[in-house]
Design a protein around this nucleic acid. Structure first.
Lengths: 233, 233
DNA sequence: GCTCGCTGTAACACACTTGTCACATGAGCG
DNA sequence: CGCTCATGTGACAAGTGTGTTACAGCGAGC
């Protein structure tokens, strides 16, 4: 039985007040997340690089390196560039909010905030992560055409008949083309969080996908030991 | 994007404080929108129906009919059901925020807010809302003819007798031809957001529709696990 | 009152989908 | 060269989605 427990999603919480960290961590854990924390910008960056969290909750007000700075630096580093960030701001910081958004924070919550709301935001953000910002709804790769709103896939103008899961798997991979997606990641994005599904299931679906795609299957690379990738180029 | 001059998009602003309306309107206009406004729920609903704005900015706190109520009513009315809504809430209204989103607001902004941010949100929402609907009132697809104002459907010049619901279902699908519509979406657009209704009801009506359409029924595709689609081409 | 048509729900059948297993294959590594 | 482990492959049972039929409530019209 190779069925394994789903890997919890890891959240990095960055705040200089221990009480705040405590409160946030408690609620995120209760919602089923794994939580790590940092008290200042420096260690936040280090932990983000080393532990590759799935999302970051970041206080705007930090000693020494300020939250916006941390945000910018996270975006510059390739290993952390695409991690969703939620900013925590003291109320009435309107200007900073926008700047935060423009600098690459994905969402923000104003203090004082309700833990429930924060958890909701985190969940939302992780879900949204599946569809990248300018989510192309029509993609063409040589002979392969993917039309999301029409739910249509064609190879060399011949329509390919995919099931809902196969279609979703293909679009997720195609939207993240070039980047390897782990099986866990795919399970989360294609199968929606709460599934205790064997990672081998991904392999099976990918196999079916390849079979149906025929010649266009060569777009789908296997990265041994890591996951799958939709070939860029 | 075609090069022709784009018609300004119309935004309805609903707030009981004249200053707030003024501020919002000024900034939206500066961003190139046409703005209309209402000071209470009642007139908001009326203007929304009559002027069919492209988006609505709606204050949560309104005299008499409250913002959430307005939101719900907008969703129930067929002509306004799918207009994107941005809620304005006084800060710390956390619970209401969440409820607002669940009731069908598409986004919200907390007071005090920066005008720039609001404009940003509106733009985002409109972008997300995406492609303009091809709501022609007379459509012809081979042997199938749909005349919306006359409430008339013919197949091979033989008039087909549809009930109100069937007719609406058919026109909604036809107007969105090519794109798959989920059952939930159809419930919202055809049944006006009566979420009390079982999704299987859609199936039944579609079956009746197919039966009555006879040969023209082949225009209606089932996309398993996703929804229904009026065949393009 | 009654009937009739429309609507939403329930129940069932059937085909397709899906997650898992067992085994085959093959890459990577000493 | 041979071992080990990750992935490919084919098969299968259970689960799920949809077509189909039937039926009850309800309002309109007579």
């Amino acid at each position: 039985m190779s069925s394994e427990l789903r890997v919890k999603q890891k959240i990095l919480v960055v705040d200089d007040e221990p009480d705040a960290v405590e409160l946030i961590a408690f609620n995120l854990k209760a919602a089923g997340f794994e939580v790590i924390s940092a008290m200042d910008g420096e260690s936040a960056l280090r932990r983000a690089r080393q532990e590759s969290p799935d999302a970051i909750v970041l206080d705007l007000m930090l000693p020494e390196v300020d939250g916006l700075e941390v945000c910018k630096m996270l975006r510059r580093n390739s290993t952390t560039a695409s991690v969703p960030i939620i900013m925590l701001t003291a109320k009435a910081e309107e200007v900073d909010r926008i700047i935060g958004l423009e600098l690459g924070a994905d969402d923000y919550v104003t203090k004082p905030f309700s833990p429930r709301e924060l958890v909701l935001r985190v969940k939302n953000l992780l879900k949204r992560q599946g569809a990248p910002e300018g989510d192309a709804d029509r993609m063409e790769f040589g002979e392969l055409l993917i039309d999301v709103p029409r739910h249509l896939v064609t190879v060399k103008d011949r329509s390919v008949d995919l099931t809902a899961t196969e279609f979703k798997l293909l679009t997720v991979l195609a939207q993240r083309r070039g980047r390897v997606q782990s099986r866990e990641r795919l399970l989360r994005d294609v199968w929606n969080y709460d599934s205790l599904i064997d990672t081998r299931t991904v392999d099976t679906h990918l196999r079916r996908l390849r079979e149906k795609l025929g010649p266009a299957a060569r777009m789908l690379d296997t990265v041994r030991g890591v996951g799958y990738r939709f070939r860029d180029s």
